[in-house]
């Protein structure tokens, strides 16, 4: 499948010389939900701004729907909806008007029925005749989403949509993303909540210091996360493992004092019972047993540490 967003080797240096993107390449497939995970200052907003035309890349190329975002900006931007990280709204404008404005700006003919549907979906309909300044923070964020959806984008960027919002809005947001997925909309969201990426994404990308460290299917990552390790300390150091244990893929430590057994917690049989039996049969005495789990958080922290 051709990718709907294609970022090739993009670098971005700001005027002060700071390089916020250091050769980012990323392909996003049509219809997928991609979570970009990264700490503050990683370059998430810069990457999104560069795709959407708010900042110009120093080098590299970007296409959306096959259209180059600079040479063919009209066609590319027609497909894009953007919900920025900061809540930027004209304070004295009415909700309905500001959403209408967005649709017009994107060249679409006025369609109040559609906008009212969008507002209803976001529980904003009752507020349509309020001025934006009268709304709570969460409501303002909903207005920003309504503005982005008003022109029926095929690709939606949500920049930290749930940072600092209440639980209810976060749940609504997740449901919204699910509905968009069913409509075939590609969604790219940035977050620093791992649970959020886990809950809604198909793929997870990890970004730090302007570099993409990994982009992987969530299920593959989860599988890695589902791996557990059992460390078995022996009463007497072994120099070589007996043949009878070869099926377990055990790893003997350098000093021969411990063994590590990796297994999948989600498998039908973990093999622990038979391993312990076979260890006893082989005459190896156990002093201690520990298990540890590698979480997405561990993977993330590990990756971020490695890169910095």
């Amino acid at each position: 499948m051709p990718s709907i967003v294609s970022v090739k080797n993009v670098r971005k240096s700001y005027d002060d010389g700071f390089e916020a993107l250091k050769g980012v390449s990323l392909d996003i497939e049509e219809g997928e939900i991609l979570a970009l995970l990264g700490p503050n200052g990683a370059g998430k907003t810069t990457l999104i701004s560069t795709i959407c035309g708010i900042t110009t890349p120093t080098s590299g190329s970007i296409s959306v729907g096959g259209f180059d975002v600079s040479a063919d900006y009209r066609a590319a931007r027609n497909l894009i909806g953007l919900v920025p990280q900061e809540i930027n709204l004209e304070p004295f404008e009415f909700v309905m008007n500001t959403v209408r404005f967005s649709r017009g700006l994107f060249g679409k003919a006025r369609n109040d029925a559609l906008i009212e549907d969008v507002l209803r979906d976001l529980s904003l309909y009752e507020k349509r005749n309020n001025r934006t300044v009268e709304l709570s923070g969460g409501m303002k964020r909903r207005v920003l989403i309504a503005k982005a959806l008003s022109h029926e984008p095929r690709v939606l960027f949500l920049d930290e949509p749930t940072a600092g919002v209440d639980v209810e809005l976060r749940k609504d947001m997740w449901e919204l993303v699910e509905r968009l997925r069913q409509d075939g909309v590609t969604v790219i969201l940035t977050t620093h909540y791992i649970e959020e990426a886990e809950a809604i994404a198909d793929r997870i990308g990890v970004i730090n210091n302007g570099e993409i460290l990994l982009v992987e299917d969530k299920t593959a990552l989860m599988a890695r996360m589902g791996q557990k390790e059992m460390r078995i300390e022996l009463t007497e150091a072994a120099t070589k493992l007996p043949e009878s244990l070869s099926d377990y893929n055990l790893v003997l430590s350098d000093d021969g004092a411990s063994l590590v057994y990796s297994y999948d917690t989600k498998a039908q049989r973990t093999g622990i019972t038979s391993l312990l039996k076979d260890l006893q049969a082989a005459g190896l005495g156990l002093r201690d047993v520990q298990t540890s789990q590698s979480s997405l958080e561990d993977i993330f922290v590990g990756l971020v540490k490695e890169s910095s």
Binding site: C52, G53, I54, R74, N78, N88, L89, S102, L105, K147
Partner: peptide, 14 residues
Amino acid sequence: FIGTIYEVLSAPIS
């Protein structure tokens, strides 16, 4: 000043 310019800059408008 208030940041709403992002929308104009990211719209398909010359």
